[in-house]
């Protein structure tokens, strides 16, 4: 990498790394894994700097692919036993902060693919066509994945529903 390219790369990192790291954190829920994810993607970008037209799109695509690969390559894979968790009991409405804390935990219980599509759609606010491009799937798949991820969220966090299911006590009142 020559001096000019290095300068351009540094400018890119300066301008976009915080957003990339925040996306990585939303994807992984783990600060160390997020840093690893971003840095590994940036290392790949450095080696292809002259061949990449859109550095940010390239880094994001690498991040999503690497995340999926890491999931598959866990050393002793025992995610098998973690199937559908039991439905959470319907609780009284709590305050918004508590809801957000709960949602953080709920997001971490989604599959990587489900979390990725929600982060792209509701955190990065990307249109479906761009999400499909990043995830290398069809727009229809993006729609169905989003729908299924939201359905799972509703199951795991019924308090997120706009019209939550009443508690048994409320229903009988």
């Amino acid at each position: 990498m020559d001096a000019q390219a290095e300068g351009e790369f540094r400018e890119f990192v300066e301008a976009r790394s915080l957003a990339l790291r925040r996306t990585a954190y939303a994807l992984t829920g783990d600060p160390h894994q997020a840093e690893d994810l971003v840095q590994a993607a940036l290392v790949k970008l450095v080696r292809r700097w002259h061949r990449v037209d859109n550095p940010e799109a390239y880094v994001r695509r690498i991040m999503y692919h690497d995340l999926a690969s890491r999931w598959r390559r866990r050393r002793i894979v025992r995610e098998d036993a973690v199937a559908e968790p039991p439905d959470r009991p319907v609780t009284d409405a709590a305050d918004a902060v508590l809801h957000r804390l709960d949602l953080t935990q709920v997001l971490l219980r989604l599959s990587p693919g489900q979390r990725a599509v929600l982060v792209l759609r509701f955190y990065e606010d990307l249109p479906e066509r761009e999400i499909a491009e990043i995830l290398r799937c069809s727009v229809g798949t993006v729609r169905s994945q989003t729908s299924r991820a939201l359905a799972r969220l509703r199951t795991l966090a019924p308090e997120l529903a706009a019209d939550p299911v009443p508690t048994p006590e409320e229903a009988s009142a």
């Binding site: 809801h99 949602l103 953080t104 997001l107 969220l153 997120l160 529903a161 706009a162 019209d163």
Partner: peptide, 12 residues
């Protein structure tokens, strides 16, 4: 039942 998308955005 619809999901409160704004809550989801805020949480993220």
């Amino acid at each position: 039942m619809t999901l409160d998308e704004q809550r989801l955005r805020d949480a993220l």
